[in-house]
Design a protein around this nucleic acid. Sequence first.
RNA 1: CGGGGCGUGGCUCAGCCUGGUAGAGCACCUGGUUCGGGACCAGGGGGUCGGAGGUUCAAAUCCUCUCGCCCCGACCA
Length: 495
Amino acid sequence: MVFAPKDAKVLAAGRGMSELKLPARSEDFSEWYNQLVLRAELADYAPVRGCMIVRPYGWALWENIQQALDRRFKATGHQNVAFPLLIPRSFIDKEKHHVEGFSPELAVVTIGGGEELAEPLVIRPTSETIIGHMWSKWIQSYRDLPVLMNQWNSVVRWELRTRLFLRTLEFYWQEGHTAHATREEAEAETRQMLDIYTDFAVNDAAIPVIPGKKSDSEKFAGADTTFSLEAMMGDCKALQFCTSHFLGQNFSKAFEVRYLDKEGQLQHCWTTSWGLSTRVIGAIIMVHGDDQGLVLPPKLAPYQAVIVPIFKTDEEKTIVFETARKLKADLVKANIRVTLDEREGSSPGWKFNDWEMRGVPVRVELGPKDVAKQSAVLARRDRPGKEGKISASLADLPATIERLLVEIQQSLHHKALAFREANTRDPKDYAEFKAAVETGFAFSFWCGRAKCEEQIKEETKATMRCIPLDQPGGEGRCICCGQPAKEKAIFGRAY
RNA sequence: CGGGGCGUGGCUCAGCCUGGUAGAGCACCUGGUUCGGGACCAGGGGGUCGGAGGUUCAAAUCCUCUCGCCCCGACCA
């Protein structure tokens, strides 16, 4: 799938002509995305360039994401903490690669209370340093380990080009930080968290992901190894869903995080960090959305069902609302997140479109005819038009909707997986490779050399997304240089 | 930081070339008719034309500077 470059004037003209409709996803993916975020009221632009205001509907989605992950973090023994927003500038300088990576994108506070500060403070771009600093105080013995922490917060990275949810100067995320006595334990933690993210991505976000290892050039500044989950968006571009880093002893050495082992020997801890940001909201939009707007996975949707009442006369209104309110109560009792659209002055048709824009998985249409039959019309968001509509009896509605939500959840994942597979190729030679990354992912042998990675990037604009953990086995030749290669890697254009 | 585009009611834009009473559609408010896929009529509220300076009797319109936003490239969750 290839998208033509945008001309602001053409876009403006198109926008003015049809305010009701979004730009077609297939014609202008990026403009479709931008407008959808605004129109579905997920987020808005802040007065400061590159900053984002997350609106109630968007934040409700994020809260569901938070709960889904927090549950899993707690179940694996992690505890939530809160570290400060401001970090002494000198902390950043203590780990060599960390400084190099983050210096260009730091926001720095130099004045406090009207006075120039003796030492500038950076607004955290991530918290490894300040956490390392505190750990050096808290950790003395192997009995203090492991330390398993997580914090939900926001961080600031001064990015040049920004887009709502995908890249903003400030973004919300969680950052997990752990310290362990052994390398093996820390490595296991890194992988465990990647598994947890995978479980969340597949089962809650309905997004198929490829767990894998990052190249040296793409890994986190200060990590020994970075793992990520890579996903394919609806325009066939790659998006990094989250990361999990094995930090080795890099930060424990920089901050003197040491413990006394059973033999009485002083050892440096082995640490990890892992994070997932509001960017996944962008992923959900770009993976599942369609021309009508958002399509939210039931497990994360702020509303899993919406009841749209239909009536003409006041009598009808009374009876329809009475039934609708009772229905709503029944659904709430069945633990279905439901809302009843009681807005006056909008026609049912308008409401149908509005809730489709917002991606509510199941719509319940309830009119006088339905009440008479003690039934309702159910429309599934993932199957537009009449095909997605069924009639169901009111008595069975909670059960029917529950079943639909499960089906929709699965169907979204299947559809996304089929799409990714259809757009992932195994090119036979470099010419085929070039064509493949124009329109999707290429899964190719790679010699592991940075030189080939760079050459590919320059010639195709595609980057090495990850070396999937799941390897087909065997050996081959590097798609770029033809040298023997042991591993296959995913290449693609990325966000 | 380079290249392109754009700043006019909440939104999308017209008006600018050729200076002379600030407009339209949508949204909003009121009333009425509507309501099973984006309803209609009537009335109404709302804008120091991004900002500063200049030219002029007179500036949304011309000139200079400036700020901001969007899109395309170089850095990145």
